[in-house]
Design a binder for these strands. Structure first.
Ligand code: FES
Ligand code: FES
Lengths: 156, 156
DNA sequence: CCTAAATAGGACAATTTTAGTCCAATATGC
DNA sequence: GCATATTGGACTAAAATTGTCCTATTTAGG
């Protein structure tokens, strides 16, 4: 189904919340939980991952909490994906270390990698700020240039 | 990790093999297994899915086998993905029927859907014929037009 | 007919992944 | 000291995936 894990889904909501509370103040996990209606333990887990991934910074102790490490406009969807579920790799063969035993006979591995890169490129251009905006008119157009040189435009 | 299932990976190899043997002749599962070095039971499973999905047609009995239902140029990666792992839906909320309880408070659901569509559009323009070609120079360029109208081009 | 070659359909257990919660340790402010 | 918070990891239950196998059905050919 080519789906993302719930952790990533939650993570996005959490990041959006932090972007909202973003007057530079620290926001404790309990706040995030209340604001997103996600159970506190889950929020804590997500925030830990985001902190380790370097997307948010934390302060411990009383008065502590979390805060975006950068402006929402400078956090890409690709980074979020990478942090929350590791680098995009559609097939196992795409991994540099994992060696598929079919590789000698395989003709498609390279193509999947290209598709991965296309997806990655798509997410590179979408920032947390884009996600934060109300999802009404979200201008997104997609173009692939074929070898022939003619471009097909898809939008819907 | 945003990965596809192994079934889909196998399915692609199987389709490529069928595209190779494509002199219109029927190709039994045992042949596909030998050609792809994938275990026979797995190949059988994959071919059953592809047949039900309408990507290949089958003939039973002695002399039977499988055959692409269309030319490789007219089978898109999106179709393959849809058939083998169901429609692309990054988040559960993207599903029309599944109703996320966070929906009233959620600000990002729409954006994920847009990203899904971008991915879908990417795979719409890639055909089985593209996958079949040796993965050397696979011309793919990706462009998103922002609201501002300026286009960023990504290629690597 | 009879047999061998094939697909159709689904059941099945084993493995792996995911989800969500909880606990003990540590750090901070008052 | 004490309440507030993060840190790190352990842990279990549930869900998804994987790969194989079994039985029924269909077809070609002698
Ligand atoms: S290299 Fe593993 S399937 Fe192609
Ligand atoms: S609608 Fe479910 S998380 Fe947005």
């Amino acid at each position: 189904m080519l789906r993302i894990s719930k952790i990533t889904d939650y993570g996005t909501l959490v990041l959006v919340h932090l972007a909202r509370c973003d007057d530079g103040r620290l926001c404790p996990a309990s706040d995030v939980s209340a604001g997103t209606h996600i159970a506190l333990p889950t929020v804590q887990k997500v925030l830990k991952i985001l902190t380790r991934g370097g997307l948010v910074e934390s302060a411990r102790g009383a008065g502590g909490g979390y805060r975006l490490v950068r402006a929402p406009e400078q956090i890409s969807a690709a980074e979020i994906l990478d942090t929350l579920e590791g680098p995009v790799a559609l097939t196992e063969c795409s991994h540099t270390d994992s060696h598929c035993k079919l590789e000698p006979n395989c003709q498609v591995g390279g193509a999947w990698q290209k598709i991965s890169q296309a997806i990655r490129a798509a997410m590179n251009d979408i920032t947390l700020a884009d996600l934060r905006t109300p999802p009404n008119e979200f201008p997104l157009r997609y173009t692939i240039l074929h070898a022939s040189g003619h471009a097909t435009r898809q939008s819907k």
